[in-house]
Write a protein that binds this DNA or RNA. Structure first.
Length: 894
RNA sequence: GGGCGGUUAGCUCAGUUGGUUAGAGCACCUGCCUUACAAGCAGGGGGUCGCAGGUUCGAGCCCUGCACCGCCCACCA
């Protein structure tokens, strides 16, 4: 093994391995494999920028599972790629153009698209580099982008098939319109925010009764008074007796001086406000429906930028909010503004730019989702796909069962152009996979493609099969679909997961994944959401540079308990950097010791399996028996944890195992056996190397770089640790008696250490200690391991005595299986020991009383399971023994 | 207006079907530079598990109510 530096420096080794893994195409999936398959498609990051901490968590979780499955011998596919993210990316590029004093309209559609492609190349490249640097084990030969030709073909295919099935339609409806982005957006892209606004009560005079004598009016309430300019009716509830007299009459619309009818419609709720409601079919979804029911005209009073248009009469040209103030001022002047009430209501904002969304009447393309949703619901109901944590299934169901049609057209330039062509001669619309030569209706030759593009999520919805080659029946599709797992964030459950479910079931006949795991949200150390505006964003590259990728990955893993958010702090990263350093130094120790021994370097077993080795007499040292027993148990527990996405548990297990078992005890005990050697390594050393090898494999899915580096240094290798078999649980390696004996040894040493500390024995001083063993096992063990006890408890001598120890002339600590004694002249602070014993005596007494009480409870004895009662009895016995020993020791000390 | 989650050590959080003595990291205290590691070693202190009831032989865990915090969904003007 080459010389290892004292301090672990991740930045020296990580880029090297990251590059090598990619170059060697280590993670390429096979289509001709007979091994079990595990596949997963990446939630494609947007090409709007670089990866953030949320991505890093997502990728860490995915990578841990993929690496683990791969090490278990499965044929794994992690398919990487990126999303064109229509509106978001277009905005980024438009912003850049604005900085140069340009805008997309000046540039023209074609030139603008070219600019966006340039951006995409750069951003996509950054993302890939970042992923490689973070060690993600993707199959880069299968990298995809949502606007790739193949994926675009899949989009057109799906569009046409849905259209032909009657599940895509075009029509004039109220949609959510962002006046800033100047496009329609879907319901999901509208975020509602509580807003303290006003409810304006406006008088609408009754036609024919405007004069001073018969003066009559009704009062309507609205939060958006400027829309009144487009009112085409006033509605009252048919059952509302108060307004019966107005049925069939007309109202005079103020400001516009237009007569509009009173209509009776359920739209009006007698209990709300005055029970009279203005009807504006072109600017409100409910009014729109009422308008259809009552055959009302639709008057659109705004343009696409939110400015009032010619239909708004005197207000034309004003911005909608300016128009609002002017309308109110004018109403007030005319005495028609009855009152203004403060009113809290939810207001819709554009998810991207936060502009207040305007309900707008326009012609758009829609997907009729109900039929698709039904099959997607069934797939989860009957367990073909399961959600974890399972509360997400409920949220999925709730949304799917109340789903509304999906507006899929966007008035943008960046995205998949809608595959529909408008005949310039007869206005016929042709939906087709490829551009038609002439109109199928009038046979004229002049056709123009619909200018709109599709909602980004339309193509994302196809991702699990479009990336595998659909609509071709490819080998990839056959091998890897349905995918085994989807790991993603809850924020795109509806946007993406739900829609993939619908499209997957519809076009593949099978849901796209067996399991959907919803991961945590990464917050900052103060539990605040990370956002650019808050300025609390942790940059993955920065922290990986500072603490090492493995440490950051480990931090994320150990904090990733299902269903809870992660409060990421640099303190934690620092502590897991220390863990990485610990592993590094264990390796360093091993390498230095091997070198010093003079023996031949270690050669890993050819079969790749590292079973423990007995000596020529068939014997194995206690520490070896113990560590392999612990190793196999931990391997099993880690697997169980990962199987259930309990990443935090797996991380805790390995952390504790490696640090507090492997290093603190195993290595310390091993030090005793080191002696000069020559020739091949004896079993004691062989086992040390093998146990370390296996430990590195357990660690590898979480800390790929460090483990690869050390594994390669540990012995000559043919391949990467990423392809080494993962040490699964092996019951034959469990050694209960070794575990028991080891526990005893640890207890003896621990008690002496504790005693020394309590009594303030100089830490540097080696002192003699007497030990009494209560039975043959203890006596044999302590005899055999007296050197270990001496070394680990810093003793000059461990003296085994045959008679029970008395506290005469010393301080004694008695436990059920053994007692230890320090001579008084070695103990500086006997008083401290006395106080400690008193405290312990009190506690033991309390515990005994509590346990006795329970054991005397007849109901407990009769109703509790036998094993519970039995273990409590045993506990009582233990407590009794401990108590009497403590009491006795204390008496002797006095 | 509906729905969901949280409240456990000074801080940040674990605690899978109710079962012996509630854990971790960081921070803190004491002592050690013991040649793998001071990013280390050894030892230690610290919790009425948000509040009030209930179910149970037994509750951090189950039920009810309350308080505070956070989130999601929603076409009531």
């Amino acid at each position: 093994m080459a010389e290892i530096p004292k301090v672990y420096n991740p930045s020296e080794i990580e880029p090297k391995w990251a590059q090598e893994w990619v170059e060697k195409r280590l993670f390429q999936a096979a289509t001709d494999s007979d091994r079990p398959m595990f596949s997963l498609v990446i939630p494609p990051p947007n090409v709007t920028g670089s990866l953030h901490m949320g991505h890093m968590l997502e990728h860490t979780e995915i990578d841990i599972l993929i690496r683990w499955k791969r090490m278990q011998g499965m044929n794994t596919l992690w398919l990487p790629g990126t999303d064109h993210a229509g509106i978001a990316t277009q905005m980024v590029v438009e912003k850049q153009l604005a900085e140069q004093g340009l805008d997309r309209r000046k540039l023209g559609r074609e030139a603008f698209e070219k600019k966006v492609w340039e951006w995409k190349e750069q951003s996509g490249d950054t993302i890939k580099k970042q992923m490689v640097r973070l060690g993600t084990s993707c199959d880069w030969s299968r990298e995809r982008f949502t606007l790739d030709p193949g994926l675009s073909r899949a989009v057109r295919e799906v569009f046409v098939r849905l259209y032909e099935k009657g599940l895509i339609y075009r029509g004039n409806y109220i949609v959510n319109w962002c006046p800033r982005c100047q496009t329609a957006i879907s319901d999901l892209e509208v975020v509602h925010e509580e807003h303290l606004g006003n409810l304006f009560h406006i008088r609408y005079p009754v036609a024919g009764a405007e004069d001073a004598v018969s003066k009559e009016w009704v009062v309507v309430a609205t939060t958006r008074p400027e829309t009144m300019l487009g009112d085409t009716a006033v509605a009252v509830n048919p059952s509302d007796e108060r307004y019966r007299k107005f049925h069939g009459r007309m109202a005079r619309l103020p400001l516009m001086n237009r007569e509009i009818p009173f209509i009776t419609d359920e739209l009006a709720d007698p209990a709300f406000g005055t029970g009279v409601v203005k009807v504006t079919p072109a600017h409100d979804a409910n009014d729109f429906q009422a308008g259809l029911r009552n055959d009302l005209p639709q008057i659109n009073v705004m343009d696409e930028s939110g400015k009032m248009n010619a239909n708004a009469g005197a207000y034309a040209g004003l911005d909608r909010f300016e128009a609002r103030s002017r309308v109110l001022a004018d109403l007030k002047e005319q005495g028609l503004l009855e009152k203004i009430e403060p009113h809290t209501h939810a207001r819709g904002h554009c998810q991207r730019c936060k502009t207040v969304v305007e309900p707008r009447l326009s012609t758009q393309w829609f997907v009729k989702v109900k039929p698709l949703a039904e099959s997607a619901i069934r797939a989860v109901e009957d367990g073909r796909t399961r959600f974890l944590p399972d509360n997400w299934a409920k949220i999925y169901f709730d949304w799917m069962r109340n789903i509304h049609d999906w507006c899929i057209s966007r008035q943008l330039w960046w995205g998949h152009r809608i595959p529909a062509w408008h005949c310039q001669a007869c206005s016929h619309i042709i939906v087709a996979r490829e551009e038609p030569g002439s109109c199928s209706h009038c046979h004229a030759g002049k056709l123009e493609q619909d200018p709109d593009v599709l909602d980004t999520w339309f193509s994302s919805a196809l991702w699990p099969f479009s990336t595998l080659g659909w609509p071709e029946r490819t080998k990839d599709l056959e091998t890897f679909y349905p995918t085994s797992l989807m790991i993603t964030g809850f924020d795109i459950l509806f946007f993406w997961v739900a829609r993939m479910m619908m499209m997957g079931v519809e076009f593949m006949g099978e849901a796209p994944f067996r399991t959907v795991y919803i991961h945590s949200l990464v917050r900052d150390a103060e539990k605040q959401k990370m956002s650019k505006t808050r300025g609390n964003v942790v940059n993955p590259l920065e922290v990986t540079e500072k603490y090492g990728t493995d440490a950051v990955r480990f931090t994320l893993a150990i904090m990733a308990a299902p269903g809870t958010d992660i409060a990421l702090s640099e303190d934690r990263m620092a502590s897991y950097r220390a863990f990485a350093n610990k592993i590094w130094n264990a390796a360093r120790f091993l390498s230095l010791s091997l070198e010093k021994s003079g023996a031949e370097p270690w050669t890993p077993p050819a079969d790749g399996v590292c079973l423990p080795l007995s000596d020529s007499n068939g014997q194995m040292a206690l520490e070896d028996r113990w560590i392999f027993s612990r190793l196999t148990r931990i391997a099993g527990e880690i697997g169980t944890a990962w199987e259930a996405f309990r990443f935090h548990e797996a991380a805790h297990l390995i952390y504790h195992f490696f640090w507090h078992e492997f290093c603190d005890w195993y290595l310390e005990l091993k030090k005793l056996t080191f002696a000069p050697l020559q020739g091949p390594l004896p079993p004691a050393w062989e086992n040390l190397c093998r146990a370390f090898d296996l430990s590195l494999r357990l660690l590898h899915p979480m800390m790929p770089f460090l483990t690869e580096e050390l594994w390669q240094r540990l012995g000559p290798r043919q391949q990467s640790i990423a392809l080494a078999p993962f040490p699964n649980y092996n019951p034959t390696m469990v050694d209960e008696s070794a575990e028991k004996e080891m526990n005893l040894l640890q207890e003896i040493i621990g008690n002496i250490r504790n005693m020394r500390a309590e009594m303030r024995v100089d830490a540097k001083r080696k002192i003699p200690v007497e030990l009494f063993a209560a039975n043959g096992n203890v006596s044999r063990l302590s005899g055999q391991y007296s050197q270990a006890i001496e070394r680990l408890a810093n003793l000059s001598a461990l003296q085994l005595v045959a008679e029970p120890l008395t506290a005469e002339g010393g301080a004694v600590r008695s436990l059920p299986e053994f007692a230890v004694k320090i001579a008084l002249n070695d103990a500086v602070d006997v008083e401290a020991e006395r106080n400690r014993l008193k405290k312990e005596e009190e506690k033991l007494q309390r515990d005994r009383n509590a346990v006795s009480a329970r054991l005397q409870n007849q109901e407990f004895l009769s109703k509790a399971p036998k094993d519970v009662v039995e273990s409590l009895r045993q506990r009582k016995e233990e407590l009794d023994v401990k108590y009497s020993k403590v009491t006795e020791t204390l008496r002797n000390l006095n």
